[in-house]
Design a binder for these strands. Structure first.
Lengths: 330, 330
DNA sequence: CTGTTAGCGCCTTCAC
DNA sequence: GTGAAGGCGCTAACAG
């Protein structure tokens, strides 16, 4: 591969001149620029971005860490990230944290391969993040609570969302409300559960641990958890699934046993994923402002990069989406 | 940030020794290794990946170019890419080609920031790809036909898939079959259309251009195209949508006009996206072996990287998935 | 306006 | 087993 040296030589100028010409620094006469460009073309020269990054000690790109590139994840959120990033003339790469310490995400987090990072990958540990973040290397976390310098936190109000969901069920006349949880180490899940608990409390319904069954946010786990619920003989009047995927798994389990939703049992999810309105019955759920969360995250990164001071913590509101999976018994 | 120089100094050894120690090259006494590691830890040293890549002239990562990171795209395909990449100890980054010449995808394609590239982004031009590919920089295209050195092509048999879909409609007794196309510049679309034409021909049904309406693969365009079809008064017996998204848009348009699917009109899609089995009625469609395509693509990259010689072109078979959107009138 | 030169941080011969 | 030194390809002072 041709280097800038080759170009300079062929154009009969010094490397610096070639560099200036190629990068549009206006110190070079038009004639020289033309000569250099011609030479570059002849040699099919392409700059080595790595060398350039090394020299400039910045990459102009930010990374989005996802727990799994193949989703299903929040496409609205990514859209927000993408749009704001490119609007600021930066590049965006997405990488996955599958593989733990060996993963691409961790490598990018540690090795200064990007100028900033947005984390949406619960399997990256807090300490990993805290160690990586530093001045001039901001990281924004979207999936956890984390107090540390140089790390910002934007989250949607999962607690309030959990409260809204539960309250809605209660307002519709349900008292025995099961909660199918996400993984124990999920911050989102814990907040949603807190919201559930506090709604019960506020309406003087005593919490019963038999109504809490654990899942892990996958459709499969929602299916299994629901089967267990059904096996317990005494069905609750309603069930609150900590996310939509699990609710869809639950829908399937109920269907297999001939239990009608919402006639025999009401269900509500969380997230408002695209599928939610297509399943049958359409799923009532809690929507998160995902686009805004993504856009805000990038926005904050740029503010930190320009050393503006910003708040450390942001909390975005959730919203109830009424569809047809909850029956009104009130 | 601490550099390897700082580590060496603190450990009281030469830089080279520190490098060896840190990279596990067994030339260094255990005692020295310990000293170096201690120093690195004290300084919170992290290697600069960019510098390391520059020196080694390879990055150990491959890039996946998508036309839009926020999807909707083929998660199965990405899974295939992801798994094979990490199984080979390489890293994977995804980037988008939104923004054309300015996009991250183009930058990575040109600037040798990765060791190989997989393209699934129709808006990247052929010439861009041809210019970028070279020895030791393999690129695999999954979305087009392209003959050139150092670029490989794996595609699913869209033509045959189009044929299968159309033939299935014909076997079910339909004669007037509309085709809602994807964008004209889409290779996939053109192949599917060819399959449609050849099935008609084989069964002696004359092609009528009034049955071809153009869309652009979006749900919205399928909706609009279907509205136009309906406005033409004379409805076809069946319609073949060049992809599932458009078919879903069509479903909505038919529903709004009270036209029952499949009783009044049969429809078939292409892709077998996840939603396909959830819409109502469940969509009959053509499935592509997406996981295999992704896995194969990466596999080929590694073969090229190790200078093995491989075929230039791969064609994967498609399969008809029968659900309930086609009525048997035969 | 153009050329010389010194690194960016790391790896890796090559001597010792 | 350890150290000195030369780049990888590029940018950006600094001189001229």
């Amino acid at each position: 591969m041709a280097t800038i040296k080759d170009v300079a030589k062929r154009a009969g100028v010094a490397v610096s001149t070639a560099s200036y010409a190629l990068n549009g620094v206006k110190k070079v006469s038009p004639a020289t620029v033309a000569k250099v460009q011609k030479a570059a073309e002849d040699l099919n020269y392409q700059k080595n971005g790595i060398a350039s990054d090394l020299k400039r000690t910045q990459t102009n790109t930010i990374a989005l860490m996802l727990s799994d590139l193949s989703g299903p994840y929040y496409s609205e959120l990514i859209k927000g990230v993408q749009e704001v990033t490119s609007a600021n003339g930066y590049d965006l790469v997405a990488c996955s944290s599958i593989g733990g310490e060996q993963s691409t995400a961790i490598k990018f987090l540690k090795e200064k391969r990007v100028d900033g990072v947005i984390v949406l990958a619960h399997n990256i540990s807090d300490s990993m993040i805290v160690n990586a973040a530093r001045e001039n290397f901001p990281v924004v976390v979207l999936d956890r609570e984390l107090e540390s310098d140089h790390v910002l936190q934007v989250e949607v109000d999962n607690r309030h969302g959990g409260f809204l969901a539960t309250e809605y069920l209660i307002h519709n006349g349900h008292q025995n409300i099961a909660y199918i949880s996400g993984p124990y180490n999920s911050h989102d899940n814990n907040k949603r559960f807190q919201g559930y608990r506090s709604a019960l409390e506020q309406y003087n319904i005593t919490y019963q641990s038999k109504w809490k069954i654990s899942g892990d946010f996958t459709r499969e786990s929602g299916y299994r958890a629901t089967k267990m619920l059904i096996a317990q003989h005494h069905l609750p009047e309603a069930v609150f699934y900590a996310n939509d995927e699990m609710a869809i798994g639950g829908l399937q389990a109920f269907a297999e046993k001939g239990i009608a939703v919402p006639e025999n049992v009401s269900i509500i999810g969380f997230d408002d994923i695209q599928l939610a309105e297509y399943v049958s019955p359409p799923l009532t759920t809690i929507r998160q402002p995902k686009y805004e969360a993504g856009a805000l995250a990038v926005h904050l990164i740029f503010q930190l990069l320009t050393s503006e001071s910003v708040d450390r913590h942001y909390n975005l509101a959730t919203e109830l989406i009424e569809r047809q999976s909850v029956q009104n018994n009130a």
